[in-house]
Amino acid sequence: MSRVVNVRVAMDVIKATCAKHAFRVSAVETLVSGGTRVVMLDPRDADAFRILMKDKLIEGAVTRSASHMARQWTPSHHRR
């Protein structure tokens, strides 16, 4: 179960929906390719969010901003 949901919905709609249904969100990111990437804290919240947004889901690959890579650790910092 993935906690990530990519949707064609404005940020304010996502915030309102998550507040209304008490979904716990880890991160929200505007996608370069259009739409929004939402990462939930709980996979069950993500599944419920997918059901609510079923007509607005983005299927397949999306293009994220290069700035999201700046938050990633370099391979040398990963614990083994």
Results as ranks from 00 to 15, higher is better:
H78N: 10
R37C: 10
R80V: 14
R24P: 03
I51G: 03
V5K: 01
F49Y: 12
V38M: 00
V32A: 13
E59F: 07
D55M: 02
V28R: 11
V13Y: 10
A22L: 06
S65E: 11
V32K: 14
V25H: 03
N6M: 04
A70H: 09
D47S: 07
L41G: 05
I51N: 09
V9L: 13
A16M: 08
A19Q: 08
R44M: 11
A70C: 06
R44K: 12
L31A: 02
V39E: 15
H21Q: 10
G34P: 06
I51E: 13
H68K: 12
T36I: 08
S65K: 06
H77D: 09
A22I: 00
S65N: 13
R50E: 11
V32P: 01
T17H: 00
G60C: 00
A61M: 11
E29N: 14
F49K: 02
R71E: 09
T36Y: 02
I58Y: 03
S33R: 04
H77M: 14
L31T: 03
D12N: 11
A48H: 07
H21D: 06
P43R: 05
L41H: 10
M40L: 12
Q72H: 14
A48R: 15
R3L: 06
R8K: 15
K20Y: 05
E29P: 02
K56T: 07
R37G: 01
V32H: 09
K54H: 08
R24V: 11
C18D: 05
T63L: 15
M69E: 13
W73G: 08
T63Y: 05
D45H: 15
V5Q: 00
L41R: 12
E29A: 12
R8N: 15
M1A: 11
A27Q: 09
G60F: 00
T74C: 06
M40I: 01
I51R: 14
I51V: 14
H21Y: 14
T17A: 00
A10R: 08
V7L: 03
D47P: 02
R3N: 07
H78K: 10
K56Y: 12
V39S: 10
K15Y: 08
P75M: 03
E29C: 13
R24F: 06
R24S: 14
K56G: 04
V28T: 15
H21E: 10
K20W: 00
D47I: 04
L31G: 03
T74L: 11
R3H: 01
T36V: 14
I14V: 15
P43Q: 05
R8L: 15
V7E: 01
R44Q: 13
L31H: 03
A22G: 04
P75D: 06
H21T: 02
V62I: 10
S65L: 08
V28C: 11
T36N: 09
T17P: 00
K20I: 00
S26D: 14
